[in-house]
Design a protein around this nucleic acid. Sequence first.
DNA 1: CTGGTCACCTGGAAGC
DNA 2: TGCTTCCAGGTGACCA
Length: 275
Amino acid sequence: MPELPEVEVTRMGLAPFVEGKVLRKAVIRVQRLRSPVGELAQKLDAKTVLQLSRRGKYLVWHFVDAQGVKGWLVTHLGMSGYWRVWQLPAPEPGVHEHVDFVFDDCLVRLTDVRRFGDMRWFDDDPFGQKPLADLGWEPFDANVTAEMFARAMRAKRRPVKEVLMAGDVVVGCGNIYSSESLFLAGIHPARTASRISEKRLSALFGAIQSVLSQAIDAGGSTLRDFHGVDGVDGYFALRTNVYGREGELCRKCGSPIKRIVQAGRSTFYCPKCQK
DNA sequence: CTGGTCACCTGGAAGC
DNA sequence: TGCTTCCAGGTGACCA
């Protein structure tokens, strides 16, 4: 389920439970997620979580050991991952509950049915390295303007939906929020990015910010559930305008919503509202 | 740079 | 009921 808003909500939910705390023990019950997990448990042992941050859809755990040596754990939720906080003692883990981080007063547990998630340890600052370094701008970076976004988009000769999904201009829009943002901006998902006016692309940037921040707020309202005692997970009941609504009527104009396939993924749009 | 395919993995829903 | 097929919110590798 995780696009940027879900990851951000996860970060906000976990942070108060882990920041400043000593990770007493990491228990890893899986050989690999997307990549091998290897020596991870030893790497994490007895280190303190300085900070939990987010870059795109990645969650970045900043650690420091007793000698003051820093380290970073970069994690990704893939398609089906989520973290949950448990009071101690936590229940026995289920089949797909692969990782436990045990702290003095709680345990955070990663569940990932499909195991497309990822966890990688970095001895050096990861932000200038492989997966993170290649990412596009953060959509809420105050230094990024709609004009910059529009100019970068106009350099792309691909369908605008695919450009958003690729995340090399701006991160955070996965399959749902790409469709939703384009609906809000009134742009047809198959339109070539370079052929959209600067003005409409600027509007798209605003639409992305609006869709993502609304989703974060919606998730924020479920935060209580997220770390509730009986731990209802952090999914959203999201009211989409187009995503998953093929054949249903557009909330704005009443036309039937269409579905097409782009880059192997379903795209939903209103043929009348989006040109 | 672009566009297409495949692969990673499990499970739920729909179709027959 | 049981089997098959399709589909799922992500990424990265490989190929033309």
